[in-house]
Amino acid sequence: MTGTRPTTIVACPDGPILVRGDAQIVDEDGKPVERRRATVALCRCGASAIKPYCDGTHKAIGFSAP
């Protein structure tokens, strides 16, 4: 299988940003963040305890996406 499918980024309604495909997640210093799964959810509400990844906290705080 070749990587013909483009990387996609989906902003979930009032939720995280889903990233599928070959995107490299890096921190503010450009260092790679460990990525353990093919599809990842990035925190959008700012309240996750496992940033940059989502931990579902947006639901507990009633986050409403701008």
């Binding site: 979930c12 995280p16 889903l18 599809t39 990842v40 496992i50 990844y53 931990d55 579902g56």
Partner: peptide, 16 residues
């Protein structure tokens, strides 16, 4: 810990 991260992904895929 794995489920905190994984299921935050899965719930989005499963819902929509």
């Amino acid at each position: 810990d794995e489920h905190v991260e994984a299921d935050a992904v899965h719930e989005q895929i499963a819902g929509r």
